[in-house]
Design a protein around this nucleic acid. Sequence first.
RNA 1: GGGUCCAUAGCUCAGCUGGAUAGAGCAUCGCCCUUCUAAGGCGAGGGUCAGAGGUUCGAAUCCUCUUGGGCCUACCA
Length: 568
Amino acid sequence: MKLITDIVTDILTKAVIESFGDTIDKNEIAIQFTKDINLGHLQTNIALVSSKKLLKNPREVAQLIIDNISTGEVIEKLEIAGPGFINFYLNPKFISLYINDFNPSSWTYDLDIEQGTTVIDYSSPNIAKRMHIAHLRSTIIGDSIKRVYKFLKRKVVADNHLGDWGTQFGKLIVGYKRWLDKDAYNENSLEELERIYVKFEQESANDETLLPEARAELKKLQDGDEQNKALWQDFIDTSIKEYNKLYKRLDVEFDTYWGESYYFDSMPLVIDELISKNIAKESQGALIVEFDESENLHPCLIRKSDGATLYATSDLACIKKKMETYDLNKLIYVTDDRQSDHFKQFFRVSEMLDWNVNNIHVSFGLMKFADAHFSSRKGNVIRLETLLDEAESRALKIVEEKNPDLSTEEKKEIARVVGIGAVKYSDLSQNRSSTFVFDWDKNLSFEGNTSPYLQYVYARIQSILRKADFDNSIKQDLVFSTEIENKLVLQLTKYHSIILKTAETCKPNIIADYIYELAQMFNTFYNAINIIKSEGIEKHSRLVLINKVADTIKSGLDLLGIEVLDRM
RNA sequence: GGGUCCAUAGCUCAGCUGGAUAGAGCAUCGCCCUUCUAAGGCGAGGGUCAGAGGUUCGAAUCCUCUUGGGCCUACCA
């Protein structure tokens, strides 16, 4: 099976070679979908790009290429347009066959076979803190990338790189020993741990002895002190238990929960390697790696002057461990963009060590309120659980308005799917590099460009298919006569290219944009033409078409981690 | 100071590896449920793509500078 763009590119390439031999670089030959169906299905600008080299005007070049393309099975007609674009109109017969065979949810192309394993590191909350809405981005962007990779049949491992080895443990242990309320801890351990952490931050502002004390407790922990280690393990166990409740609601799953501590044993090995390869050196008592001035990077701190290790050390150890564990090709880290420099630093160090791995930082803009940043220290955070509860309860209210006759059970299920979907979609539909301004009404909206809109289209189509007694197994030629149907068809043919592009860029909003456009087109179609009242081949074609539209919406939403409903 | 990301409609944002007339949602105004689910559709108004240069047949997109923001700036992660 081949992508439509590849089929047409092959035809074009052959014609270009016949016309101009190897004067034109094959890599320059590209096909793209047109913006407007009145300009054909696909277009190329090859004549414009190469006219200078050929010393001919672009329209003349286009004509020479067209002369070597025979119309028929695939191409119905060709046109030269504007300054020298070549527009391709696909043969309706070819489209009919293509749509009949089109299965959005399966990837049957033998291109893009990435060798080796990709590990995606995402979510990665800090132990002993409840997750708040800022954790949402990493969690669902990472999950979506994982789904896209799986779709493309790549080997992928989802890793939750828990923050279980930072300075917060020094602070927590101090807080635990000084201020812990045992009853509160038994009742709601994470909430109590959060309380003593916040208390530590407040107290240490006035008490200068607290911070050194926390550092000392951390050191004791890192040196294997029994009591501190037991406390630490307890913090981790309770935390993971709580996180898993939220992951389940979000339908997010991990293959491994390798926190920073998992790499503890590898860290000295990394340090040895850095020293023996003369990459790291001592500076002011610490061990650092310096970079060339042109890199515009600060030195990477490997070991502190007190001997303790740092973030970069554990991240390097993490790469090492993963190279040992997997046939590793790529590591994807999904974190906010404040950490960009840190990633550049240890990626560079990994290169200096000649480690053969493709490190990618998938960064995203911070989530904030219109007028303030979130900060657990300030205490102005919205907990993830609160957000999900609110989403479901708002959705339930609307289901009760729109569909009072459904059973309580079904209404609850619809509210769950719609509510969680709305939360995820409002995030994933935005380009991840933008700062995300959180607003209750905007993020929990159920109208316009939202997941409920898409789910609604899906449910509408299911309703039509039920009423029309659509039989999916009947195969006959399809005929699409109206412009809107042809737009829908063209949109469907783009789907698998869109997924490939999403994988290349790690930008789930590309899929979101695409399905939204598809859904909009369907609604236009739906309002203009009564499908059930159509007849004969026209009716069958339309039912096949909307069935494929529904499957595509379902598949696309699935890649965003969003469910669909047969009724809502 | 250095680095980095950003600036698109009243608001929130797509579009950015250069392509034809810059899009959507919200908000505002008008219309469409005796018709397959109105969480919908159709239409209207709304733009110096921050500004100035440059590259190009072609620039919101690439380069340079300016202005205004966010973030980072070795012993946190």
